[in-house]
Simulated assay, not measured.
Amino acid sequence: MDQKDAIDILEKNILDNVICRNLELKPGVIATYIAGLSNESGGYIFLGVEKDETQFIINGISTTFQLTNILNVAISKLSSPIILDFCFLNFKGENIFVIKVEKATVKILCDEEYYIYKSNGVLKIANKTEQYDEQIPDKPTLFLSYREIDTPIVNIIEDNLKRLTSDGINISRYTRIPYKASFKEFMNGIQDHDVVLCVVSDGYLRSQACMYEVGEIIKDHHFNEKLIFVVLSENERKYYPEGFTEKIAANIYGSEVKRLQYVTYWKEKYDELNETIRGIDDYEAISDATRSLKEIGQIYRNDISEFMTYLADNNGKSFEYLCKNEFKDLLGWISKK
Rank of each mutant, 00 (worst) to 15 (best):
R176W: 08
A181S: 09
K92W: 12
L197W: 00
L89C: 08
D167K: 02
D85C: 10
T151R: 12
E94P: 02
V154K: 03
E112C: 04
R163K: 02
K107H: 10
V195Y: 00
L84D: 04
S145D: 09
N127K: 15
N188H: 09
D192K: 05
Q191K: 05
I190H: 03
I169G: 00
S145W: 00
L109P: 02
K92R: 09
Y179H: 06
K124E: 15
K124P: 05
I83F: 06
G93T: 04
T105K: 14
L89H: 10
D111S: 08
T141N: 10
F86D: 06
C110A: 13
D150P: 01
I171M: 01
E158Q: 03
R173G: 00
Q131H: 09
I83N: 13
A104K: 15
G121V: 01
L197K: 02
F143G: 02
Y146V: 09
F88G: 02
I156C: 01
M187T: 08
E134M: 13
F97Y: 12
R173S: 00
E130N: 13
Y179E: 07
Q135G: 11
Y146D: 13
F186G: 00
K103T: 13
I169S: 00
L84E: 05
I156D: 01
I171K: 07
D133C: 11
D159T: 01
A181E: 11
E134S: 12
Y146T: 11
S166C: 03
Y114S: 10
N170I: 08
F86S: 08
V106F: 02
S119D: 14
Y115D: 11
K107R: 14
K100A: 11
I156K: 08
G189D: 09
G121I: 00
K180V: 13
I149V: 13
P152C: 03
N160L: 00
Y115E: 10
C110D: 09
E185G: 06
K92S: 07
V199C: 04
E102M: 12
I169A: 00
I116P: 12
K92F: 14
I125N: 12
K100P: 14
F186L: 09
I96Y: 00
Y117Q: 07
G121Y: 11
L142E: 11
V122G: 14
Y132T: 09
N170V: 06
I125C: 11
K180C: 05
G93A: 05
L164F: 02
P178D: 05
L109N: 07
K107N: 13
P137L: 14
I177V: 11
E112R: 07
P178K: 07
S145F: 01
I99P: 05
T165S: 03
L161M: 02
I156W: 14
F143Q: 05
Y179C: 04
Y179Q: 09
F88S: 05
I136H: 05
G121D: 11
D150G: 07
F86V: 02
I108R: 07
V98A: 08
I125V: 15
T175P: 13
P140Y: 15
M187V: 02
K139I: 10
Y117T: 04
N155I: 00
I153G: 04
S145L: 11
E134I: 11
D85P: 12
V98L: 09
F186S: 01
D194L: 01
Y115T: 03
Y174P: 03
I96Q: 05
K139V: 11
G168R: 01
Y117H: 10
K128T: 15
G168F: 12
I125L: 13
E102Q: 14
D138Y: 15
E94M: 14
C110L: 08
I136P: 08
F88T: 01
